[in-house]
């Protein structure tokens, strides 16, 4: 099988997901090549053909143009699979490409099983093994599912992709950086995080109290931040902070993929959840099946009495 990898570049830098794409292709064996809208001065470590369009001409975000450039490469290389990261760039571009190719798209692949691709469903409580019925398939990979043991090496053979006319139906006016200030959870050694299971903002206090008793910081999952119960700077997950504390206590957090991606490298994870089957249990060292509103205050009291 021949695979075309679509690498990512943002704000003048290559993204870390590129090594996951390469690892996926390497694991599958067969031939692969790469496409990138980026810069000749920042090339990925990769052994193989790299079709490179200049971001200065093609724009970092211009999906209709990037799609067209990719279609030209696909016509030349005739891959059976086009692989992107399941990221804000990848999930935006993949369906555009899939429709142009009338190809099946397989989103957020977590695993290859018996030669078929496996995708998560229902907050990772189920997995679907799926197969494309088309000659070419467009695939996106879940972040972290194919992280290689070692970073790839090598220098690509660069083939320049000409960008005739910029154009496009979407105007991109640059980036807005995350708001500065707030709490830097990435340096915290102990984090107690609140999830949707806290139920109402008044219950945040029990989480804060446990964090105090453990001399740590408190964080939160996305729903709690979206509900404006907690400052966005305390959000842990893909769109918030990535944390690596010695102890991470997940209270009432079911364990959506986006949250797990931000905290799964914690040294020790204690989860408190009423749902024994919650996906957080997959990565927790200990899962206490309990209502946090009962357990957390008792735990805090006992810790304070020590």
């Amino acid at each position: 099988m021949k695979i075309l990898l679509v690498a990512e570049y943002r704000d003048g830098k290559l993204l870390g997901t590129n090594s996951e794409l390469i690892n996926f292709a390497t694991q599958g064996g067969g031939e692969n090549c790469m496409f990138l809208v980026g810069s000749n001065s920042t090339l990925p470590n990769y052994t193989g053909k790299l079709y490179l369009a200049d971001a200065g001409q093609a724009g970092e975000f211009n999906p209709s143009l990037h799609k067209q450039l990719l279609l030209n490469v696909i016509e030349k290389e005739q891959p059976q699979m086009v692989v992107l990261a399941h990221s804000s760039y990848g999930w935006d571009l993949a369906p555009r490409l899939a429709l142009a190719l009338k190809a099946a798209q397989i989103s957020e692949v977590v695993e290859v099983k018996d030669g078929n691709l496996v995708v998560p469903s229902c907050n990772a409580k189920l997995r679907r093994q799926v197969k494309s019925t088309t000659d070419i398939a467009v695939v996106t990979l879940q972040g972290g599912a194919f992280t290689p043991a070692e970073e790839p090496s090598g220098a690509p053979e660069v083939i320049k992709v000409e960008v005739a006319a910029a154009g496009g139906d979407i105007q991109f006016a640059g980036y807005e950086e995350a708001e500065a200030g707030g709490v830097d959870l990435s340096k915290a050694e102990i984090i107690v995080s609140a999830g949707r299971g806290i139920g109402k903002p008044e219950n945040l206090e029990v989480i804060e109290n446990l964090a105090k008793a453990l001399k740590g910081e408190y964080g939160a999952s996305r729903p709690v931040v979206d509900a404006e119960w907690v400052d966005p700077s305390r959000q842990v997950g893909t769109t918030g902070q990535t944390v690596t504390p010695k102890l991470y206590v997940a209270c009432g957090i079911s364990g959506a993929i986006q949250h797990l991606a931000g905290m799964k490298k914690s040294e020790f994870v204690l989860a408190i959840n009423t749902d024994k089957d919650a996906p957080i249990g997959e990565i927790a060292d200990v899962l206490a099946v309990a209502d946090l509103k009962q357990l957390v205050p008792i735990l805090t009291e006992k810790l304070n009495a020590m």
Binding site: D11, F61, G174, E176, P232, T238
Partner: peptide
């Protein structure tokens, strides 16, 4: 648009 790591992209059409 929301990108990764709290960054946003300003877009229009």
């Amino acid at each position: 648009r929301e990108l990764e790591g709290g960054i946003k992209a300003k877009v229009s059409c």
